[in-house]
Design a protein around this nucleic acid. Structure first.
Lengths: 233, 233
DNA sequence: ACAAAAGTGTTGACCATACACCCATGC
DNA sequence: GCATGGGTGTATGGTCAACACTTTTGT
C-alpha cells in the first residue's frame, strides 16, 4: 500500500498429487512424471503446470490431470500452498508459488495417457523414488490428508462407480488405511447405519460365492450430515 | 513449458482471518479493517498484505498480524488459497491470488494496535458487516476450520498462557463451539485422561470459590499422539 | 453459615470389537 | 458336497451424557 515495499512477482503453478487405489493388489499408487528439463532434470515429480491466463486454480489442476489420465469418477481437493522464496524453481525475476491439489481415483478406472515414451508412471506408495524439490513433503502431506478424509468424509463414493458392493468400499478403505483398520462386518454395520447407502436390490456375481448387493450413494440422505462430525472408519 | 501457452502473472497476497476468544463475554470475534482505498473502499475486510520479495507466505501472515495486534501466544495456520480470475482485485496486467491464513488468540492477551484513527476493530462473529469481495467465504471457511481444529487438535494450548486452569480451557471451548457442546465434568475427565496436561500443584484463586489447579500442556506426552486421531470435544 | 467455584463419582444408554454363525452361489 | 465369498447376529468391554455429590475457598 504505502511507499517502498519491494513486492514479489509470481508465477503460480499447480502440482497434483494423484493417488490411485488398486483393491486387487491391495496397493496405493501415486502418479509421478520424470522431469525432462532442468531444474532437477531426470528426477521424478508429481505432475504440475503453470496457471494460464483466465484459468482458475482448480481448472489448471483438472487440466493437468486430464493430460495424464482418462478417468470419470475422481475426487479432487486443494491441499496446500507452498511458497517459500529461494526454492528457485522459476527464472530469476519471478518467484514460484505452488498450489498443490490431491486427487483420488481407482486404478482400474484410470487409463494412463502415455506420450513421448513412458515418462509417466504409477509408483507404489511405500516404494517411491527420490523426488525433486520439496515434493516429498507435498506427497506426505497429501497422504495424511487422504487418510483423514477417508475417515470422516464420503470421498470414497466419489471415486467408486455409481453402483458398487460393500466389499468394494471395504477394499478401498483397506488399501488406503491398511488391512487392519477394522473388521469387515463392523465396517459394514457402521456404514449401513449411517443411512446414506441405498440397496438397489440388484445382485452382482463376482465369480464364486454368494452374489453381493449393489448399493448406490444417497446424496440427498447425506446432505443433512454434510457438516456434522462423521465416522466412516 | 511448450510453445504458446499464455501464462498468468500474479501478485500474491496473504489474508488473515484472525479470531479472538473472550471467555468473559463468551464471545468470538474477528479482526476486520476498513478499506481506505478502492477497490471496495469503505468496506470491511480481514487484514491482508501483498507478499514482499524474499518473504515467505507465513512470514507475510505474521507480519500483518503483528502490525495489527500485539500478542504472544497465538495459533496460525494456512487456510486456503483463493485464486479465481476476474475478481479484479489487482491492477490490469496482474492477477491477484489470495493465500488465506487463520489465527486464534485470546482477546485479553491481544492488544489492538490502532493507527490512523480506529480503522481496525473486533467484530463479534454472529454480527458481521458486509465484507468486500469473497471475504465472507474466507471467513466462514476459517470458522469451520477453527471449530474442527479445536475438536481434534490441541490448538487451545498454543493460545492459552503457559499455565492455566481447566476452566479456562473449558471456557475457550464453550466460546468457540457453543455453550452446550459438552458438560464440564465430562470435558474435564476426557481432557485429563489424555494425559497431556501436567498438574503444577499450584492453585489459583479467582475471587470466591475453591481455588483451581494450574495445569501445563505437556508437549512431550503429546508427541506420540501427534498424528493419531484424537477427540478433545 | 452460606454461596460460589472446583473437583469427584455414579448410572444407564449406547457403541465398538471380536468372533461365531447362516446364506447363496460356482464347480 | 464343499469351497468361496456375502451377510447377520451376539456377548463383552468400553465410552459418553447427565446429574448428583463432595471439597475448598471468600465473605
Amino acid at each position: 500500500m504505502s511507499g517502498a515495499a519491494p513486492l514479489a512477482e509470481f508465477k503460480v503453478g499447480v502440482d497434483n498429487v494423484i493417488f490411485s487405489v488398486d483393491p486387487e493388489q491391495q496397493r496405493l499408487f501415486v502418479l509421478l512424471i520424470k522431469r525432462l528439463h532442468p531444474p532437477c532434470q531426470h528426477q521424478w515429480s508429481p505432475p504440475g503446470t503453470l496457471v494460464r491466463h483466465g484459468e482458475s486454480l482448480e481448472a489448471a489442476a483438472r487440466r493437468i490431470l486430464q493430460e495424464k489420465i482418462k478417468v470419470h469418477n475422481l475426487y479432487l481437493e486443494q491441499l496446500y500452498t507452498f511458497g517459500a522464496p529461494g526454492s528457485d524453481r522459476a527464472s530469476a525475476p519471478h518467484r514460484y508459488l505452488s498450489v498443490s491439489y490431491f486427487a483420488l481415483v481407482r486404478r482400474e478406472a484410470a487409463e494412463l495417457i502415455t506420450r513421448e515414451g513412458g515418462m509417466t508412471a504409477w509408483f507404489s506408495v511405500p516404494s517411491l523414488p527420490t523426488l525433486a524439490f520439496d515434493h516429498h513433503n507435498i506427497l506426505n502431506y497429501g497422504l495424511r490428508r487422504l487418510r483423514n478424509k477417508l475417515e470422516y468424509s464420503p470421498i470414497a463414493f466419489e471415486v467408486l462407480p455409481d453402483v458398487f458392493t460393500l466389499n468394494e468400499v471395504y477394499q478401498l478403505y483397506c488399501t488406503v488405511l491398511g488391512e487392519n483398520f477394522a473388521d469387515y462386518s463392523n465396517f459394514r454395520a457402521r456404514l449401513l447405519k449411517l443411512g446414506i447407502l441405498q440397496d438397489t436390490g440388484v445382485k452382482a456375481s463376482r465369480g464364486a460365492g454368494r452374489p453381493a448387493s449393489l448399493y448406490r450413494f444417497d446424496a440427498i440422505a447425506f446432505e443433512p450430515l454434510r457438516h456434522k462430525p462423521l465416522v466412516f472408519v
